[in-house]
Design a protein around this nucleic acid. Structure first.
Length: 839
RNA sequence: GCGGAAGUGGCGGAACUGGUAGACGCGCGGGACUUAGGAUCCCGUGCCGAAAGGCGUGUGGGUUCGAGUCCCACCUUUCGCACCA
């Protein structure tokens, strides 16, 4: 690590020549932290402030390890954006809080054996200390802590609003159960069949859970994406997650094989059960229905029991039991096809053929209808299954060079083509076939076109302690009763034994003194819901709370909300591209539909920042390459650290953190310091320097709002280099605007220098420097000269030069002219840019 | 497998609608100042070549007066989703 510069005495040097160039960040930064707090520099007047700009960053969960450099990277990037907007004249509100409920916090508390009610405040205090040093323009008078009853009172209120609208419901469901964390996980929290948090293989369990009907909003959540100014990668991730599929629901009538001709060999099924039974399947390929040679139901499908023939019952039951016991990872990663014939048959509505009905675990109950029509000729999975169980494979699509008779034994044909072996639809293209076949089947009441989504309802129940209790009371007489809003919050009680067990019930369920409560409707003794809600619910609405924070009687103040929301710009990590951002959009839509919000999309503009890696590798404790912001701020100061973080790569892509790089940024700030200190007001500013200054103001003013912080910093450094070329003290007019440009990046030193320049107000209220655009236009230009496409040099010519004159000038030029050896066959002049002479 | 992003000096990274490739910074080389310097300041720094000049943006083709940028094929890395019918 490079040694730090010699310390400079604070205050202004009297003997300039003797002073070291470096400044002492710790003194400067401490002084301005204090002044900002004293003066309320970061507390906008939300009621009166004009031209509001709500700059939001994703709030952190306060881990015991303290602030991660990745947090600081994100916060600094957002802070620069916010400060820039303030310099443009906006009233900027930049809040920050703590997402302190949830499994991550609770697990850590369990690990170290400290109760979360003790641990979390400690972590929060540490975070606050670290954040204070970072120089963020955060309005700490309006913060949130999701574990504060004054906050989660309103989280519970949000739950009640959904409940009131019928969007919260309870059902027994197969859920993902993590045996280590001893809790239910949302589908989103399971990766490859393992708990996203601890990596344990997830089991299936059946529990009563609360769900939100987010899937009802899938279409809107998808369609609205087109109207949002969001990072394309984030939008794409949401689209994938919503998983829209256009297709058809088709119905297959189950028949009694005895009445079906030529089926005497198959087992008898119960006609009573089968009468009128239809199996509904979802398919994206209705055009291939003539090739549907069997049906497959998910093992859990409710129709399985009823249609299984007596002779097949024991085998089917055995298969179902096996599938039910199997954990999700085996089921989803073991692609070897298994299945069992039910003995039942159904009628293919297109061909009229009897086709067998199977069950197999490659069909998932949670997607579509839990049943498929199998088209082994044109689906890889069905093909594999048909080969294994010797089921018929029929070609119904012919691609290039294929005919109706081309076999599809080697592999399924999934490409485009025309329909064959499909009756009156022969010869149609696949796309046309989909529409026509669907319409035909609809006319025969055998199906209809349908849009299907992959998105599932949001399971919000958690059998844990560290979360807001779900505000529901169960009464023997009145049933499920929501806690009246006036009784909120349902306070999470202090219980020493918060450790979860594998009973499937929350730790709160062990505390009768807490859950025994009078029914709000009839007064009879009832029982509280003992599950708490998912952390993602806490964070699905926090941005609505910030601006209204002083008020305790409402979740959000109507007038303030009208003025400050939706959020102007949201900056955060793409790891939350689907979960948090989708849930926040959903909750906003629900509250909008309830008439409580005037907008249905919470984040007008969202930008995903990149990730910081360390010397080519991800930072992790096991690798021992984690950057602790404190150490760097101690050594270099927050301004240098901030600026370095922004300089090491494009903000939206992240970058590689290398210790060696910081010295260059510190050097830049030192030079800036020295330039201001040594400034003079005597004489006139250098016109060339002023021209460069104008170009720099322009570039930094364009790059900063585009989040191209790295190139904005480079431009400021470049200008600094120009300043230093003069070998004389800089003129005050040459350096003063640079202080304003630097302010969003290095706010402490900017304030200090602004004061040194004689200003009384904060540099954050100084506005953005103006420049004279006419300085940037010139009568002459440097024209690049190419000969035969090869660059040979450049010549200075009048801006409006003609092609002939440019050619003559090029010929006359000593360095370039020698390459133009003959008569050009072609001459190209790109005005203002280049001349290409083709010989 | 499907979908997205990206491959540029020793390193991090610049390059607007095709128009001087390598800005800025690190590192490295040389020099100045110094008892000293790992501080500061100055000069240099894509590769080959003494030079003229040549070669250079993952690979191979193509379009163009001109390609890091556009088109085709491939290689590599990386991030999402993944038996989603």
């Amino acid at each position: 690590m490079t040694a730090s510069v010699p310390p400079a005495p604070s205050g202004y040097p009297e003997n300039v020549a003797e002073e070291p160039i470096g400044y002492d960040p710790s003194a400067v930064e401490a002084r301005w932290r204090q002044r900002w707090a004293d003066r309320g520099t970061h507390r906008p007047d939300l009621a009166k402030g004009e031209d509001p700009f709500y700059a939001l960053m994703m709030f952190p969960y306060p881990s015991a390890e303290g602030l991660h450099v990745g947090n600081l990277f994100a916060f600094t990037g957002c802070d620069i954006y916010a400060r820039f907007q303030r310099l443009q004249g906006h009233t900027v509100f930049e809040p920050l809080g703590y997402d302190a409920f949830g499994i991550h916090s609770e697990n850590f508390a369990l690990k170290v054996g400290v109760h979360p009610t003790e641990l979390i405040p400690r972590n929060v205090a540490n975070f606050r200390r670290q954040l204070d040093r970072a120089g963020l323009m955060v309005d700490w008078s309006r913060s949130v802590d999701t574990t504060d009853p004054a906050y989660y009172k309103w989280t519970q209120w949000v739950f009640l609003q959904l409940h009131k609208q019928g969007l919260a419901y309870k059902k027994a469901a197969a859920v993902n159960w993590c045996p280590t964390d001893k809790t239910v996980l949302a589908n989103e929290q399971v990766e490859d069949g393992r708990c996203e948090r601890c990596g344990t293989v997830v089991e299936q369990r059946f529990l009563e859970q609360w769900f939100f009907r987010i899937s009802d909003f899938a279409g809107r959540l998808l369609d609205n994406l087109d109207t949002l100014d969001w990072s394309p990668t984030t939008k794409q991730a949401q689209r994938n997650w919503l998983g829209r599929s256009e297709g058809a629901k088709l119905r297959f009538r189950v028949v009694d094989p005895l009445t079906a001709a030529g089926s005497s060999a198959v087992a008898v099924t119960t006609e009573v059960v089968l009468k009128g039974t239809e199996i509904e399947v979802f398919t994206t390929r209705p055009d291939t229905i003539f090739g549907a040679t069997y049906l497959v139901l998910a093992p859990e499908h409710p129709l399985v029991d009823g249609l299984t023939a007596p002779a097949h019952q024991s085998a089917v039951r055995a298969y179902r039991d096996r599938a039910a016991k199997q954990d999700l990872i085996t089921r989803k990663t073991n692609k070897e096809k298994t299945g069992e014939f039910t003995g039942a048959y159904a009628v293919n509505p297109a061909t009229g053929d009897l086709i067998p009905v199977w069950i197999a675990d490659y069909v998932l109950m949670e997607y579509g209808t839990g049943a498929i029509m199998a088209v082994p000729g044109h689906d890889e999975r069905d093909h594999e299954f048909a080969l294994k169980f010797t089921l018929p494979i029929v070609r119904v699509v012919a691609g290039e060079g294929q005919t109706a008779r081309s076999p599809v034994i080697a592999e399924a044909y999934t490409g485009d083509g025309v329909l064959v072996n499909s009756g009156q639809f022969d010869g149609l293209g696949v796309e046309e076939g989909k529409a026509k076949v669907t319409a035909w089947l609809a006319g025969r009441h055998a199906g209809e076109a349908v849009t299907n989504y992959r998105l599932h309802d949001w399971c919000i129940s958690r059998q844990r302690y560290w979360g807001p209790p779900i505000p529901i009371i169960y009464c023997d007489d009145c049933g499920t009763v929501p806690v009246p809003e006036a009784d909120l919050p349902v306070v999470l009680p202090f219980i020493p034994d918060f450790k979860p067990d594998d009973s499937g019930i929350s730790p709160l369920a062990r505390h009768e003194e807490w859950y025994r409560v009078a029914c709000p409707t009839c007064g009879k003794m009832g029982r509280r819901e003992t599950d708490v809600s998912d952390t993602f619910l806490d964070s699905a609405w926090y941005f609505l709370r910030y601006p209204s924070v002083p008020r305790t009687d409402v979740a959000f103040d109507a007038a303030i909300t009208k003025k400050w929301l939706p959020v102007t710009t949201y900056i955060g990590g793409n790891e939350h591209a689907v979960l948090h951002l989708l849930y926040a959009r959903f909750i906003t839509m629900v509250l909008h539909d309830a008439g409580m919000l005037h907008f249905e999309e919470p984040f007008t503009k969202f930008r995903a920042h990149g990730l910081i890696i360390r010397e080519g590798a991800k930072m992790s404790k096991s690798k021992g390459n984690v950057v602790n912001p404190d150490d760097y701020i101690d050594q270099w100061g927050a301004d240098s650290f901030r600026t370095y973080l922004m300089f090491l790569g494009p903000f939206e892509e992240g970058g590689d953190f290398r210790d060696a790089g910081i010295s260059g940024v510190k050097r830049f700030l030192d030079r800036l310091w020295a330039s201001v200190r040594d400034r003079t007001a005597a004489g006139a500013p250098d016109p060339e320097v002023l021209r460069k200054l104008a170009a720099t103001i322009k570039k930094v003013g364009e790059d900063t709002p585009a989040l191209s912080y790295n190139t904005a910093i480079a431009a400021m450094m470049e200008y600094m280099n120009t300043l230093r070329k003069g070998e004389r003290p800089s003129h005050v007019q040459e350096v003063e605007p640079l202080v304003q440009l630097v302010a969003p990046y290095a706010p402490h030193i900017a304030e200090e220098l602004w004061e040194m320049l004689g200003h009384k107000e904060s540099v954050m209220d100084a506005g953005w420097p103006k420049f004279d655009p006419s300085l940037l236009v010139s009568d002459t230009i440097e024209l690049v000269v190419q000969v035969g496409g090869k660059t040979r040099g450049k010549i200075v010519v009048p801006k409006s030069i003609t092609q002939d004159a440019a050619l003559a000038a090029a010929r006359a030029d000593a360095s370039v002219g020698k390459f133009i050896t003959g008569e050009p066959s072609k001459v190209i002049l790109v005005p203002g840019r280049l001349l290409n002479v083709v010989l």
